[in-house]
Nucleic acid binder design. Structure first.
Length: 259
DNA sequence: ATGTCGAGCAAAGCTCGA
């Protein structure tokens, strides 16, 4: 079973790239972020024709998350991250597919820091921590997949000072990510590639960062223990980032052994 | 490496978010 996460950066703008990738890689489940589309604008028919059921939470212009499942409709369990009824940003959806609870999350970027956006980022991560603990307590197999907008460690970014003041690399967000791992989640990419350098999932459009491989690791799949035991392979479909009209992120995927 | 990209607003270029 192959589960992927992909910050698509506007699903309609990127639809040809997405459909080509779905056809080539045939993931069983795809967590998408940054749809930048309302529910009405979601390309339902194209996704259905590609053979995928879909659950999504859209928003005009910004954010938006979805879960696609090949041949079935995801069974939705959450359409927002619990903990703040006033938060109306479309950043979290969760569904059951083939016995696994799968979340597609788009954590706040948090720039500039300090400031209200940074405070929102940290508060959102605290809410994620609380909900993640509830999910673990359920003892179900769970995958928390998405764009965490956090570079977990210094080796997860190219050598630079450009991001020194960026919210993505600050100690507090890094501590928030580490706190998730401390709950018992497995960072899938690091689990099977503990020493590999240049494990990037995002390359900014600016400053020639893709040709220079000046990347960051922002997109993560966190696995509960039952899922971690089934982990067979994990990778980044890096070539996708080099396509015409590409998103600034590349897909990350895991392959799970049957139960 | 002070730069890319696209959307919104509103009618073209500026501003915003990432």
């Amino acid at each position: 079973m192959k589960i992927a996460t992909f910050n698509i950066n506007n699903i309609n703008r990127r639809l040809p790239n997405l459909l080509a990738w779905l056809a080539a890689r045939k993931p069983d489940v795809v967590c998408l972020q940054e749809l930048k589309a309302t529910d009405r604008q979601f390309p339902r028919s194209a996704i259905a024709e590609a053979g995928y059921g879909a659950a999504f939470v859209g928003q005009s212009a910004w954010n938006g998350v979805a879960i696609l499942a090949r041949g079935v409709d995801p069974v939705v369990t959450q359409t927002s991250l619990p903990g703040d009824p006033d938060d109306d940003q479309a950043r979290y959806i969760e569904a059951a597919v083939d016995g696994i609870i799968i979340a597609s999350l788009y954590a706040p970027n948090g720039n500039p820091q300090p400031g209200p956006k940074y405070s929102y980022k940290l508060a959102w991560m605290e809410r994620l921590h609380a909900h993640a603990q509830e999910l673990l307590d359920s003892k179900l197999p769970i995958v928390l997949a998405g764009d965490y907008n956090i570079v977990p460690e210094p080796r997860d970014i190219y050598v630079t000072t450009s991001y020194r003041d960026n919210a993505l690399v600050q100690p507090a967000p890094r501590a928030a990510y580490a706190a998730l791992l401390a709950q018992g989640w497995t960072d899938a990419l690091r689990k099977l590639h503990p020493e590999t350098p240049d494990l990037y999932t995002f390359w900014d459009y600016m400053r020639n960062r893709w040709p220079r491989n000046a990347g960051l690791r922002l997109d993560h799949l966190l696995l509960s223990k039952k899922v971690a035991k089934r982990l067979r392979a994990v990778g980044v479909d890096k070539e996708v980032r080099g396509e015409e009209g590409a998103s600034d992120h590349a897909p990350v995927w895991i392959d799970l052994k049957p139960e």
